[in-house]
Design a protein around this nucleic acid. Structure first.
Lengths: 260, 260
DNA sequence: GAGTGGTCTAGACCACGGG
DNA sequence: CCGTGGTCTAGACCACTCT
């Protein structure tokens, strides 16, 4: 298409019906470009994890300026269909993992249950003094000792989230000496007999700032999902405060609620 | 870190108050541009709902090409800080509404409870034959009569979501004759004695397709949040199947879960 | 070193809105 | 009508990866 002679006139069809998913012929170049690539993915020509042709290659393939090519790629990225590795190329996204905030299984469990391969990497673990914001959350004095744990988690070797966990050092003394590359909840349970009775979870679309973006090896400013979880024990004491930043295309939230 | 409890965008680097020349803080122009505008919003110079200067005006203000200006604006849009009305301009986003999928109050209730002004507009209501996908969800034969309701919902006069609701026509005969501009759940309860015992809710970042984008009067392909809810009664019968597309910047999800 | 995406410029024309 | 954002072109240089 758009073979020669410049521009196939934008015939802009009036769109009477409701085609919903597959928008057919579009007058806009970046949309045809998007559909061109989406078609090659849907047809199975390009499979999850595979690399797309380079932008300059696509440019000659479809005969558009590079900016227009990129506009189409950004759309597919926003849809979660493709993702990029910085300066390496564009790749077809694998399916998202399903997360149910009302369940207690940790990341390792539910990723594995979905037939994917989870991994956790501890980026840092330090003791910090409680600042004003944490003081309010934990109801502890400013300056009280806290543990700060930063971890990166993977699904099938793709980094999907970074998180910062804060735990009251008085509640779980010596926590940092344990291995934190698995479930933190189970460490708290088995070594400190702490169990969670209540979870407060907030989720919101966000943009990944430089720190998070670097940890996920993506471009700063890409859309992400922020998940903030505060866990309480039966006495209402804060056990854990966790702030996660997910790739926006890695996660699907699913909640099943029954009236009692 | 954790500087404040909210989700205001976190500055990557401190921004000097004089953005004249040699902004060495960020080597990248579109990031200084982004921070320039973000600063004017944070300082209160630009308030929620207000219009930003035009792109060409910003161009002369900060001395960059228009493409670079737009790159910065897209970042702020992804962060939910600003939004655009097609060909009208860029505006400062109002704060998001909080949605708890585990609660039963409808849209009208929880928006009002947050001091905002909700509104619902019925776009269409029709009877349709059950297709294959609906047949599976409702466990009804293909071709069985169904009601399809399309609505648009507002917060403070800004359209924030469009939804398509499907209800089994046999379960709620004559449903379309009632006013659907308020809570559908309460109509089902009061006129048909149907109450919901279980909710299955799925949420996933998505890109708004043309149909949804037009209904929200935004550009096709903008990031959004897809919320699919299926409601069941005490007998496990499907009461309602609802597919919502939200502006990505209009919503914050908050769940509070207690172990029983 | 070659190739990739990331950034940036300086134009242009268009469709649509009523700032 | 004029101004707006939306789209598109055709270059350029850079930082980074190693496809």
């Amino acid at each position: 298409m758009f073979a020669n002679g410049g521009f196939a006139r934008r015939a802009e069809t009036p769109m009477p019906s409701t085609p919903n998913r597959t928008d057919l012929v579009e007058g806009l170049h970046y949309l045809s470009m998007r559909d061109h690539v989406a078609g090659r993915i849907a047809s199975g020509e390009l499979k999850p994890g595979e690399r797309l042709p380079s932008e300059r290659r696509l440019q000659t393939d479809v005969g558009m300026a590079r900016g227009t090519i990129r506009e189409g790629l950004f759309q597919l990225e926003a849809e979660g269909v493709i993702y990029r590795k910085d300066r390496s190329g564009w790749y077809v996204s694998p399916p998202p993992v399903v997360y149910d905030p009302t369940r207690w299984e940790g990341f390792m469990s539910y990723v594995e249950a979905q037939g994917r391969r989870p991994a956790t990497e501890t980026l840092s673990k330090t003791e910090i003094p409680c600042d004003a914001a944490l003081a309010q959350i934990f109801r502890r004095p400013v300056g009280a000792p806290m543990y700060l744990i930063r971890r990166r988690r993977y699904v099938d070797d793709r980094a999907v989230l970074v998180e910062s966990i804060v735990v009251d050092a008085v509640t779980a003394p010596g926590l940092l000496e344990h291995s934190l590359d698995r479930s933190l909840t189970s460490v708290l349970k088995s070594h400190y007999n702490i169990s969670v009775a209540r979870n407060q979870v907030d989720m919101q679309p966000c943009a990944l700032t430089r720190e998070e973006a670097e940890a996920l090896r993506v471009k700063s400013g890409l859309p992400g999902l922020s998940v903030v979880r505060t866990s309480y024990d039966a006495q209402g004491r804060v056990v854990e405060h966790d702030r996660e930043f997910w790739r926006h295309d890695a996660l699907k939230i699913s909640v099943d609620i029954r009236v009692r």
